[in-house]
Amino acid sequence: MGFLVQLLAFILSLLLVSMRAEDIINSPQPCDFRAIFNFGDSNSDTGCMAAAFYPEVSPYGETFFHQPVGRASDGRLIIDFIAQHLGFPLLSAYINSIGTSYRHGANFAAGSSTIRRQNRTVFEGGTPFTFEIQTEQFNQFKQRTGKFFNQARKSSFRGHFPRPDDFAKALYTFDIGQNDIAAAINRVGTEDSHAVISDIVEHFSKQVQNLHEVGARTFWIHNSGPIGCLPVAMPVHNNATNHTPEAGYLDQNGCVNYENDMAREFNKKLKNMVVKLRAKFLDASLIYVDMFSTKYELISNANKEGFVEPSEICCGYHKDGYHLYCGNKGMINGKEILAGSCEDPSKYISWDGVHYTEAANRWIVNRILNGSFSDPPVPITHSCRALKL
């Protein structure tokens, strides 16, 4: 009897949340976002690593920008489409000093970034711009722009920075964790993966709480995509002998099961973290966005949606166990190879084996902006109002 009462109470709570979410969706008053502040890795880096170290080379950026612009794609990223959807210009990378404006926000994301600190140099695929550093950069940005805005009352430069009260009315977006999961996968068997993932999520939680402490109130948090479905992870690009993987190693889409299972565990713990922070911060709106399901849906229906097989890579050379990444030249079997791009990137999901094409990013973002893959299920334009649920 007690279990039945609890079950009915749970169902009623779901119905109430659904009804309130419907009220938000139908509300004529969307959020009055003044800016966007983004934190993440190469999935949303709009120029940090290119400004700090080596710039991207052609053919990166060829589809939309017609030149390399610091994005790991042929065109726009999901964060670019989000900014445009909300009526903002594309976000400038925080450390990019050339031709930048931060009036409507800033992007702190950096390629190869992780939530936890990693014992890797930049040349080993690491980065100094961990999530912790990104939030510290934001704090510095907020403090310095506030002082500058108040001191330079008559300066035209004030138009290049957010107003002090814009920070509380901004949207804070997050897409990070995939590199942490990849690092944990590489160390399977040498450490407790479950404990590592729990620790990663705890580090994430700490930084979100730090941002809340300095005024952030609306959080749009992406979970990890299906890392086992990245073409460079698939045996088809890594198996020079064409050896058939053992049963259960791959799923029906050719994705590596145990890698996706690691991502699922991270996502489950990340969602639990979001739920806990909602209970702690009643003045904040925290939206959990299921990017894994969105991307996996695209991968599962690639041909139906007009794409080639999801294992195919548009830019780069990945054959017979050899890997030459997009835009690079190399000698393979005595022959110089230029790892150029495919004829039509819009037909591909994967741009370079790790990152998505603009066409795939557009497909994904069209599924997430309306709240279909969000918890609670509210569109991004009304995400600030989810605190009322």
Rank of each mutant, 00 (worst) to 15 (best):
I332D: 07
T244C: 08
N38A: 15
G75I: 05
S44H: 01
L298D: 02
F3M: 05
F138W: 11
T381E: 13
D165F: 07
G353T: 02
T218A: 06
G159P: 03
H222K: 05
L250T: 12
E213I: 08
R367G: 05
C384K: 06
A110T: 10
S101R: 08
R120T: 13
H212R: 11
P377I: 08
I299D: 03
R264C: 11
V236H: 01
N242Y: 13
C314I: 02
R71M: 07
P68F: 03
Y317K: 07
S101C: 10
V354M: 09
I11F: 13
N96L: 09
S44E: 01
A184N: 12
A279L: 11
I337W: 06
R264N: 10
V122W: 09
F167Q: 05
P377E: 09
K295E: 14
R120Q: 15
F307K: 00
N239Y: 05
L230Y: 03
N210W: 02
D344H: 10
K169Y: 03
M331A: 08
M19K: 14
E246A: 13
S372D: 14
C384L: 02
I299Y: 11
L277C: 02
L90P: 01
H66M: 10
F53Q: 04
N150D: 14
A247D: 14
A233P: 00
N150K: 12
S346K: 11
V17P: 06
L250C: 09
R217F: 02
E358W: 01
N260E: 10
F39C: 03
F307D: 06
Q140F: 12
I82L: 15
C255Y: 01
L250D: 06
T218I: 06
D41C: 08
A183H: 09
A9E: 15
F53D: 09
N139R: 15
F53L: 13
H203A: 12
S350Y: 00
V232K: 06
D74V: 04
R120A: 14
I287W: 00
N328P: 00
L389M: 05
G306S: 11
Q137F: 14
D320R: 14
S285D: 02
G330P: 08
S341Y: 07
I133Y: 09
E265F: 10
F307E: 02
L389P: 00
I79Y: 01
N150W: 09
A216G: 15
Q209G: 08
M273L: 12
I95H: 08
R153L: 14
S198K: 12
L324G: 06
L298K: 02
T173V: 03
T100M: 04
S101G: 08
V354K: 05
D290Q: 07
V57Q: 13
R116T: 09
P235V: 06
V378M: 01
Q252S: 15
F174G: 04
L338W: 14
G177T: 04
F37M: 04
P231K: 07
N186M: 14
G111T: 06
L4M: 15
P164F: 07
Q29L: 13
I36M: 10
T63D: 02
F141I: 10
G177P: 06
R71C: 00
V196F: 13
A182K: 14
G125I: 04
S13P: 03
S346Q: 07
L338C: 11
T218D: 06
A240E: 10
S101N: 12
